[in-house]
């Protein structure tokens, strides 16, 4: 399975596309959609939206972004700005739910296909099972604690970027991140997990 995946495009190139799009250049905006749609969709799925909703919210996010491009000041990365729009909407939808409905494994779309080059099949299977369990547990977290963990620990945003996406001060963000990690640790069990993997 191949995803369209150029989210790590050079920032200058990206900013040029954003500027052209803000001036009404639709093909430039479409290039931005192609670059970021898969990653945004995946982040929304990890946050807890089901397949259809994540696709719908991703689409809505880009349409809102198109309409608000003149307000994008370029102080954050374009993708961080998209996260902010998308996670706001996802948060609204998830927050209205009483329980983590649709708590299906994140890996339902083919975790068995994950490339894993370790030589030991048993270790590989164990790792796959663990990641599946971790994905499930993540969706059991309260939404307010889940968002910091998804943004910081899964998506790899910096503390500042992730706090900005959630419109939180850094101290409040860090507090929620730690509480989220502790809650997740409680859900998944404490180990034995061994040391962090070298990659």
């Amino acid at each position: 399975m191949t995803m369209i995946d150029p989210p790590e495009a050079p920032a200058t190139d990206e900013l040029a596309l954003v500027r052209r799009a803000a001036a009404g250049d639709i093909p430039a905006f479409e290039e931005l959609v192609i670059r970021h749609a898969d990653r945004l969709y995946a982040a929304l799925r990890r946050f807890g939206l089901d397949d259809g909703e994540a696709q719908e919210v991703a689409q809505e996010t880009f349409i809102r972004a198109w309409r608000a491009l003149d307000r994008f000041e370029g102080r954050s990365q374009f993708f961080t700005w998209l996260y902010r729009i998308g996670f706001n909407e996802a948060h609204r939808r998830l927050g209205s739910r009483r329980s983590p409905a649709g708590a299906v494994p994140i890996e339902e779309n083919g975790a068995h296909e994950v490339a894993d080059h370790r030589p030991d099949p048993a270790a590989r299977a164990e790792q796959g099972e663990f990641l599946a369990a971790l994905g499930m547990a993540l969706r059991e977290l309260p939404v307010d604690l889940r968002a910091p963990v998804v943004l910081r620990d899964v998506e790899g945003l910096s503390t500042g970027e992730a706090a900005s996406v959630l419109d939180l001060g850094e101290a409040a963000f860090k507090s929620r991140l730690h509480r989220g990690r502790m809650a997740l640790r409680g859900l998944i069990g404490q180990g034995p997990w061994g040391p962090p993997e070298p990659d």
Partner: peptide, 28 residues
């Protein structure tokens, strides 16, 4: 324990998801 957790959470980013860019683009 937290270090192990964070290390493994980062691996979730590599988990494959359905490609949606073409469909999203059409909707956009």
């Amino acid at each position: 324990s937290l270090r192990g957790l964070v290390s493994r959470l980062a691996r979730l980013l590599a988990e494959p998801m359905r490609p949606v860019a073409a469909t999203v683009l059409a909707g956009v």
